[in-house]
Design a protein around this nucleic acid. Sequence first.
DNA 1: CAGGTATATGCCGCAACAGGTATATTCGCC
DNA 2: GGCGAATATACCTGTTGCGGCATATACCTG
Lengths: 111, 111
Amino acid sequence: MESAFNVIAEPSRRAILGLLASSERSVQEIEQRLHMPQPSVSKHLRVLRDAGLVESRVDAQRRLYRLRPEPLMEVDAWLSAFRHFWSAQVDALERHLDRMHQEPQGEGDNE
Amino acid sequence: MESAFNVIAEPSRRAILGLLASSERSVQEIEQRLHMPQPSVSKHLRVLRDAGLVESRVDAQRRLYRLRPEPLMEVDAWLSAFRHFWSAQVDALERHLDRMHQEPQGEGDNE
DNA sequence: CAGGTATATGCCGCAACAGGTATATTCGCC
DNA sequence: GGCGAATATACCTGTTGCGGCATATACCTG
């Protein structure tokens, strides 16, 4: 798996990273917010950790996971070779923001 | 395959996109520059095309492939949710534009 | 139309991965 | 120490993706 590109190919993993973008979370929190079985979450977190995309710290019986940005920086660096295709116009950035704000990974409770 | 994230998970495919970043290329050109067998190149190009990452035009017996940036913009958009982790400046700019574009957006969370 | 070049596709085998279920481990608390 | 909660791992299975090879298709040229 190794590569961050492979790791973020998985939608569930992107969702997890999306959650961790705002704050660190316990496994249970992720499990509940994303409606996925606990072993799945743990396995994805394992992959994410092996690839250096997250790290965990212990809090009682909980493990709190938080994001490690370095591997995503690599992806960003690779993307920058193509960004001139669209970044010429600042409009693009605005559209990005628009889309960003429509994404489902909010902070509030949704259940 | 569908998703651009899956498509760019493949190193060969990233290499091909890298080549196409500078200019359009024939299959043969890609084959030679990347030292990969022709069927491999064709197959990867097929995947790339199906995902909308490249398009081809006909030039005699050659097919010239060129990049289509839209799917990569999606990746970029997704990444922008994390970019503030390593780029304080971009973050500031985003917030700035965000403030400039305060709009009543009525979309809640979806699934 | 034949032959050649450029590209695409079909088939096969293999390895990797994701999901599910059951179980193991860790830790706090009484 | 035993129990329960939180998390991790093992095992199995179905699917999918990739590489290699052979072959088909498209198109140009003479």
